[in-house]
């Protein structure tokens, strides 16, 4: 991943994200609702920071994104899953400060630990962790995300 990139929190994006989770609560789209005003403006669903992928320059899971230059390599080891055998194993968030529409977040990621395990369903499993911090325009840490991806040797038996 790039060292860091900017992620503007846009009202339409928040509405679309909430809608994709079948959540029509006004705190995610209506600035005039009393419950929104009580929260100081439109807030974001707990997993909303995932949509920073749209702004990540080298995001690997969007093969048809128009780009200048060659597409990023398939790493398949990011916490978002990866193409082919990659799956998302775990996702953890810590919430430090509210995110509101209009914020501009700076997103910074670093790799965490890597480990191996013999799996019951998919042969040898290779786990890798990545830690991402989302800071707002005032430099305040809003969310820390820890994502664990797993690569399997064969498709997971169902």
């Amino acid at each position: 991943m790039a060292d860091s990139f900017e992620f503007p929190v846009d009202r339409t994006q928040v509405m679309l994200f909430a809608r994709s989770l079948l959540d029509i609560n006004p705190v995610y789209w209506d600035p005039n609702a009393p419950e929104t005003k009580a929260l100081g403006g439109i807030i974001v669903p707990p997993t909303f920071v995932q949509s920073s992928a749209h702004w990540q320059p080298d995001y690997p899971l969007d093969l048809t994104r128009p780009r200048q230059g060659p597409p990023p390599p398939h790493r398949g080891d990011n916490g978002g899953g990866g193409l082919g055998r990659g799956l998302h194993a775990e996702q953890h968030y810590e919430y430090h400060h509210p995110i509101h529409v209009g914020d501009t977040l700076t997103v910074t990621s670093r790799p965490g630990e890597r480990w191996e395990k013999e799996g019951r369903r998919g042969g040898k499993l290779l786990f890798s962790e990545s830690i991402t911090e989302y800071r707002n325009q005032d430099g305040v840490l809003c969310v820390t995300a820890r994502s664990i991806g797993v690569q399997t040797e064969r498709a997971v038996d169902q």
Binding site: S20, L21, L22, D23, N25, V27, E35, L39, I43, P45, P46, T47, Q50, G80, G81, L87, H88, A89, E90, Q91, H92, Y93, E94, Y95, P98, R146
Partner: peptide, 30 residues
């Protein structure tokens, strides 16, 4: 489905129950 769709849908139950904007931590295994 994306695992994150399941996590997001589960999060909707959590925020409907415990309230919007007051989560401190949320973590899952798929």
């Amino acid at each position: 489905a994306h695992g994150m769709l399941s996590m997001g849908l589960t999060g909707r139950m959590v925020t409907d129950w415990l309230g919007k904007g007051n989560l401190k931590k949320y973590g899952v295994r798929f």
